[in-house]
């Protein structure tokens, strides 16, 4: 197997990457393995090109989205969000529970504008957390060992909050969908 998604696409391994640069790298690499180029090639070469093209696609799909890129990088640093982990933060959980209740009530009552208000608020928070990841990753990727050790758990914590917000935003979408249906 080949190396990391960053290596596959020939990109530097860091969080702060511009979407156009990732796209350009992907298009560049996929051209090299385009099926047209292998039309007359041996079967084994065609299969290899196809496999490579699937890997490139996986890499692109993961790296182009900031949250997925961040989670991938976190894992590359040996840190994971485990299935049976618990978030030990009663205040945050209570807040999420209350926000979910508000949303559920607005949904049942058919209060579309209230759902939209909650959605806008959570989108703002989501964006804020994504912005916060940039300096955190700068520390993770920096030369200062103490700074790295300090930033890594904070990256993880931020990504956990992002998961809760993503789940919340999915519920907002669902609520707005059933209004339209």
């Amino acid at each position: 197997m080949s190396g990391s998604y960053f290596e596959l696409l020939g990109l530097p391994e860091r969080f702060d990457l511009a979407r156009p640069a990732i796209e350009a790298a992907y298009l560049d690499r996929t051209r090299e393995v385009h099926p047209d180029r292998f039309a007359t090639a041996a079967a084994s070469e065609r299969v290899a090109a196809l496999q490579r093209s699937m890997q490139l696609n996986d890499a692109y799909q993961t790296l182009r989205q900031p949250v997925r890129r961040a989670e991938y990088l976190l894992n590359r640093h040996g840190v994971f969000i485990g299935d049976n982990e618990r978030l030990d933060d009663a205040a945050f959980l209570m807040e999420i529970l209350e926000l979910r209740e508000e949303l559920a009530e607005a949904r049942v009552a058919g209060k579309l504008d209230e759902v939209a208000r909650l959605q806008a608020e959570m989108r703002r928070r989501h964006r804020g957390l994504l912005d916060a990841l940039i300096p955190l990753f700068a520390a993770v990727e920096g030369d200062d060992a103490a700074g790295r050790a300090d930033a890594l758990p904070r990256v993880k914590r931020t990504l956990i909050e992002l998961r809760y917000l993503a789940r919340y935003l999915e519920e907002c979408d669902a609520a707005l969908d059933d209004e339209e249906a």
Binding site: I81, G82, D83, N84, E85, R86, L87, D89, A90, F92, L93, M94, I96, L97, R100, I160, R163, Y164, L165, A166, R167, Y168
Partner: peptide, 13 residues
Amino acid sequence: GLVGAPACGDVMR
């Protein structure tokens, strides 16, 4: 009891 599963973004009370 208030518990959260960060992997799925679930919260259970």
